[in-house]
Structures are given as structure tokens and as C-alpha cells.
Amino acid sequence: MQIFETEQGRQIAYHHTPGTGPTVVFCSGLKSDMEGTKAVHLEAWAKARGQAFLRFDYSGHGVSSGRFQDGAIGDWHEDTFAVIDQLIDGPIVVVGSSMGGWQALLLARARPERLAGMVTIAAAPDFTEDGYWASFTDDQKALLESQGFVAMPSDYDEDYIISKRLIEEGRDRLVLRAPLDLPFPVRFLQGTDDSAVSTETAIKLLDHASGDDMRLTLVKGADHRFSTPECLRLIETSVADVLNGGQ
């Protein structure tokens, strides 16, 4: 593990495996980290084929600096930018899981010239607005205003502390309200039994984005973790497809 400091003064932990390019970059989900099953599995797969690979922790996640409840989509967007700009030369293939899928889409919007391809796993674009805010009751919205946060139960971890800043700052990072061009091979992966991100969200993203080589694969019965042996093999196949130029 190595650590570098961003321009904002955040300490970001990462693992970088040298190899041939493009570099595969794994962007984890909300409150997930670079030690997750998919990130570690994909790293081993990349090593076996001599492919450059990088996984990292956003600020407030894993062993990077900061507290989760103080962060927002834009902070983690800055962290992702810093990883790409400071640690990697040349093109990348970004693999984004859940919130990492939103980060991948933000990266594509801001650095399209760096991307050779994209794979998302249960991508969750705009979830702060379309998921959290849209589902909040009037009481929760009032609580968010009065105390600055709402505690949300999670099926996968301890309660999420959803801050007012996370909601409000997320509105500056929405990707489904404006044109979203993905001019490179893209593979969206989605489980039909995902309780955190719906199949409808995956279809909405596919319909909204533009690009000549985009595919959505639905896996019947797969949940949000998307980490069964079959799902992991599908991730491998999708990344390899994109690395080979798609189509």
C-alpha cells in the first residue's frame, strides 16, 4: 500500500500494479474500500495477465484520511481525478461499482480523452437525489435541515450517515440531467435482485447515455454485491472485452 496527498490535502491510500496499459482503475462504492472482493479479485486477474491495475480508497473510506460523514460526491470526484492525474500515465479503463459507477461517469464527462473504456457494476448515478432525497419523508427532510444529517439503515454495513452536504453537493454532480457521451466501449452490469440499485436505473442509464458501443448485461438473481464466482467471471470478461476494443 502507498499513500499520496491530493491538492486538497487529503491522504489517499492506493495499490498500484505495474503492467501493460491501459491501466485498469477500480472505483469502489459508497462506504466500500479497495479491499473489497471485486477490487482484490480484479487486481489478481490483472496481475496474471500483466495488465496495469490500480485500486484506491476515497477520502473518508478505508485507510485514507478523513471521516465518511464529512465527504461528498465532489470530494470523491476530486480524489478520483487526483489518482488519474498524479499516479497514472496514458489511457485507462475505469471499472466503477455502485457509487463508483457514478464516479466513472463523472470521470468520463471531465476526462474523456483519458478513457479507453468503462465497465460499471450496479452503477448508481445521481443516487443522492433520485435515491435518498426522493425517498425521504417530510420528517427526514426536516431532520436533515435541523441536525444536518439523517441515519439510513444499510443491508451491507452499519447505518449510513447521510449529511445535508452530501445531498446538496450531489446536485452539482448529477449526470442523468444533461447529455452524457461515452465515446468508447462501455459495459454496464446489473443484477436483477439488487435491493440498492434497481434494474430500472440501469436501463435509464443505458437509454440516457450516448455512444457507439454500449451494452447492458442483466444477471438474473444477482444482488448488489455482484461477487459470486459467476459474477466475478463476468466482470473479468467485460473488462477484457473493453481492453480488446469492444464491438
Rank of each mutant, 00 (worst) to 15 (best):
D126I: 07
A151R: 12
D33M: 09
G21E: 00
Q2A: 12
K204C: 01
I92C: 09
M34H: 09
N244G: 15
E230Y: 03
T201A: 08
G90Y: 05
P22M: 07
G131Q: 09
F81R: 15
Q11R: 08
R55T: 11
G170R: 12
S64D: 01
T37F: 12
A116N: 06
R171M: 09
L218T: 10
G221Q: 15
F127P: 05
R215D: 13
A110F: 08
G50K: 01
Q51C: 00
I12R: 02
A72V: 05
I121T: 05
A196C: 10
L30C: 02
G245Y: 09
V197Q: 08
Q247L: 10
S198R: 15
E43G: 13
A178L: 04
A13D: 07
A46F: 00
P22H: 10
C27M: 14
S97A: 10
A39Q: 09
G60L: 02
R55P: 10
H16T: 03
L232I: 04
P229D: 11
G191R: 12
K220T: 14
F226G: 06
W102P: 04
A13F: 00
N244E: 15
T228P: 11
F81Q: 15
D207V: 01
T199H: 04
E168N: 10
Y132T: 14
T192A: 09
Q103E: 09
Q69A: 15
T217H: 07
I235M: 13
E7P: 00
F188E: 04
K38C: 14
G60K: 09
G9Q: 00
A39K: 10
L182F: 06
T6C: 03
F56G: 02
F136Q: 13
E35A: 10
F53W: 03
S146C: 02
T80I: 01
V175C: 14
L143D: 09
A122S: 15
T201L: 12
G101W: 13
F188L: 14
T80M: 08
R173G: 01
V93R: 13
A222D: 05
F149P: 00
Y58S: 02
R111P: 01
R49G: 00
G221I: 15
V119Q: 14
K204A: 08
P183V: 10
S210N: 10
G60N: 07
E7R: 12
V83K: 07
M1E: 12
F4P: 01
A142V: 00
R165V: 12
L174M: 14
D212L: 06
W133C: 03
L87C: 01
V197L: 05
R67K: 15
